[in-house]
Computed example of a mutant assay.
Amino acid sequence: MTPSPTVLVTGATGFVGRRLVPALVDSGHRVKAMTRHPETYDGPGEPVFGDVHDPGTLADALTDVNVAIYLVHSLDDDDFERKDADAARGFGLAAAANGVRQLVYLGGLGAEDETLSPHLRSRREVEQLLGEGGVPVTALRAAIVVGAGGISWEMTRRLVKNLPAMVVPRWAATLTQPIAIDDVVRYLAGVVDNDRAVGRVLEIGGADQLTYLEMLQQAAREMHGRRLPILQAPVGTPVLSSWWITLVTGVDTTTAANLIESMGNKVVVTDPAIRSIVPGEPMTYADAVRQALAEG
């Protein structure tokens, strides 16, 4: 019987990582949870120190690792494209030097022939740079991830909670395919050491394709049991939108601006190949919202 691989999860204390580590442990994997503060880590797995922005710290974390899952990005930094590119290149080279056989990365949806926002363009660049050292990369591309504590969901929740009505910019008409955090975790765990997924780009999404306006309305129905009065404005810049969201929700202005600029890109699944590799029906947006609300 082939032994279960040892898996390193970067960003182990983050929104996705803190849910993924327990799922991998439950699946029988030995898991190394990488964090800059292992002394305070209280989750499952083996805490290990590592900082993707300091490649010299990665060798110990990657020792004896078969699969490494990369869940790091720097949206709260004005220079996030350069920082994320440097980190991805360094991590990929360190993974190769330590004999890692698969890298798994959670990136972003978006058509290759479309002008991508800086956020989505950076996600695509990270996919490529992770593989420069020669380790095959499995890239899972997703749109908005819905779950308690996720920045995109928290923006939605606070907007709906704090405003009795709202005027939304034109990006609210863009089509997207939100996905529940549980489905993201299921797909990430499902591609680990899976020969059918190694070296591939796979698109993941929930059951529904919705505009951002429809997402706000569905969230309002789940939260308040009523329709939220929304007027769509014909104009709206990312800068003005980010100021508005920061004012209403308290989300960091830099993060809000970087996310909002991506909302002009249509982000939906066009290739359902993941469904045959990791079987199971994804949740609807309404179910994902109900679960996020139940978790707080």
Rank of each mutant, 00 (worst) to 15 (best):
P5M: 13
L8P: 04
G14P: 02
R18D: 01
R19M: 04
L20W: 01
V21T: 15
P22G: 09
G28A: 04
G28V: 03
R30E: 11
E39N: 11
T40F: 12
D42Y: 03
E46N: 02
E46M: 08
G50Y: 11
A59F: 06
A61I: 02
L62V: 03
D64W: 05
N66A: 13
V67M: 08
Y70H: 06
H73A: 03
D77P: 03
D77C: 07
D77S: 15
E81N: 05
D86R: 11
A88Q: 01
A88S: 10
R89Y: 14
L93K: 14
A94D: 07
A95V: 10
A95M: 13
A95F: 07
A97L: 10
L106M: 15
G107A: 14
G107W: 05
G108P: 00
G110C: 11
G110V: 07
E112G: 02
S122N: 15
R124N: 10
E125A: 10
E132L: 07
V146N: 00
G147W: 04
A148T: 09
A148E: 12
I151S: 13
S152C: 06
W153F: 15
E154C: 12
R157P: 00
R158I: 06
P164E: 08
A165C: 13
V168N: 04
W171R: 05
A173D: 15
T174W: 05
Q177T: 08
P178K: 08
V184D: 09
L188A: 01
A189H: 12
D193S: 04
G199H: 02
R200C: 03
R200V: 06
V201Y: 07
I204N: 03
L213H: 14
Q217Y: 10
A219T: 13
R221F: 08
E222H: 10
E222F: 11
G225E: 01
R226A: 15
L228I: 09
P229H: 01
Q232H: 04
P234V: 04
L240A: 15
T246H: 08
L247E: 04
T249S: 03
V251P: 14
A256K: 06
A256T: 09
A257R: 14
I260C: 13
E261Q: 10
K266L: 07
D271H: 12
A273L: 04
R275E: 15
R275F: 08
S276G: 12
G280V: 00
P282L: 14
M283N: 07
Y285Q: 00
A286F: 01
A286R: 11
A288P: 01
A288M: 00
R290Q: 12
R290T: 09
